[in-house]
Simulated assay, not measured.
Amino acid sequence: MPTPESDTHPTVEEKHHPMLKMVLEIGPLLVFFFGNLRGEWLAQKFPILTEVGGPLFIATALFMAATVIALIVSKLVFKHLPIMPFVSGVVVLIFGGLGIYLQDETFIKMKPTIINGMFAFLLLGGLFFGKSLLGYVFNAAFQLDDEGWKKLTLRWGLFFIFLAVLNEIVWRNFSDDTWVNFKVWGTMPITILFTLSQMPLIMRHQVPDAAAKGDKAE
C-alpha cells in the first residue's frame, strides 16, 4: 500500500501544466460567481435556464457542469483524479442536484459545510486510528517525516472545521450575494493564508526526496 509520502509526488503532467491545474481548481468557483452575478441576464439570453430557477440555482447548475468538465480534463491531461476535487465534485453534484430539484437553497448553501466537515472527519478520524491521511487528500509536492504529517494533518483537520463553522455563520446570517462573495473571494484567500502559515512546519519536517536524489545520481 502506498504511503502518504509516496503519494505526494506531483505527476509529470502536473509539473508541465501547473497553470492548467490551477485553472481547473479555481475555474468552477469563478463560473459559480459569474452565474450568480449575471443569472438574470443569462436567463434572458438562454430562456431554458429559467426552468432551473433563480440566479443562485442557475449558478449552481453552471457550477456543476464546470466541475464535471474540470474533472474530465484532469483525468485526460493528468491521468488521474485528485482525491479532494473528486470528493468535492461528488458532493457538489448530489447536493446541487437536490437543491435544484427541490428548489431549496439550503442544500446548496450547506454543501461547503458538508465538504469541509467530511474532510475534517476523515483527517482527524485517521489520526485517531494512527493514520496520517493528508498525503492521500493532497497531491502536494513535498515530503515530510511521520511527525510532520501528523502535525500537518491535525492542523488541516481543525482548519476544515473552522471553514465549516464559518460557512454556517455566513449563510445563516447574511444575504445570498454576500455568501457567494464569501464562498468565491473569501474562502480561497483564507485557505492560501493558512497554507502559507504552515510552511515553517513543513520546512522543519521535510525529508530529502529520494526520487530526486536518484535522478541526480543518474
Rank of each mutant, 00 (worst) to 15 (best):
M1H: 08
P2I: 01
T3I: 09
T3D: 15
P4A: 07
E5G: 11
P10Q: 15
V12Y: 07
E13R: 11
H17C: 05
M22V: 14
L24G: 05
L24H: 03
I26F: 13
P28R: 08
L30S: 05
L30P: 02
F33N: 01
F33M: 08
N36S: 05
R38C: 08
G39S: 13
G39M: 08
E40L: 13
W41M: 10
L42K: 12
P47I: 11
P47S: 10
L49G: 11
V52H: 00
G53E: 06
G54V: 13
L56N: 04
I58A: 07
I58N: 07
A59R: 00
F63A: 08
M64T: 01
A66V: 15
T67V: 03
A70D: 04
L71W: 03
I72A: 13
K75I: 09
L76T: 09
V77C: 06
V77T: 12
F78W: 14
F78T: 11
H80S: 15
L81R: 04
I83M: 14
I83K: 01
M84D: 06
M84P: 01
M84A: 11
P85I: 06
F86Y: 11
S88P: 03
G89P: 04
V90I: 13
V92H: 01
L93V: 06
I94T: 09
F95A: 05
F95P: 00
G96T: 05
G97M: 08
G97L: 10
I100V: 06
L102D: 10
D104H: 10
E105W: 05
F107D: 04
K109T: 02
M110Q: 06
K111M: 12
I114R: 00
I114E: 00
I115Y: 00
I115W: 00
G117Q: 04
M118W: 10
A120G: 01
A120I: 00
L123M: 14
G126K: 07
L127V: 14
F128R: 09
G130H: 15
L134R: 06
V137C: 09
Q143S: 13
L144E: 04
D145Q: 07
E147Y: 07
E147F: 06
E147N: 12
W149L: 06
K150E: 15
K150H: 14
L152S: 03
L154Q: 12
I161L: 15
N167L: 03
E168L: 07
V170H: 02
V170D: 09
V180D: 07
K183H: 10
G186M: 01
P189A: 04
I190W: 04
T195E: 03
T195F: 14
S197L: 12
Q198T: 15
L201K: 12
L201Q: 09
I202D: 04
R204N: 10
R204F: 09
H205E: 08
Q206P: 00
Q206M: 10
P208T: 09
A210Q: 13
A211M: 07
K213Y: 10
K213I: 07
K213T: 04
G214S: 12
K216S: 01
A217Q: 15
E218D: 10
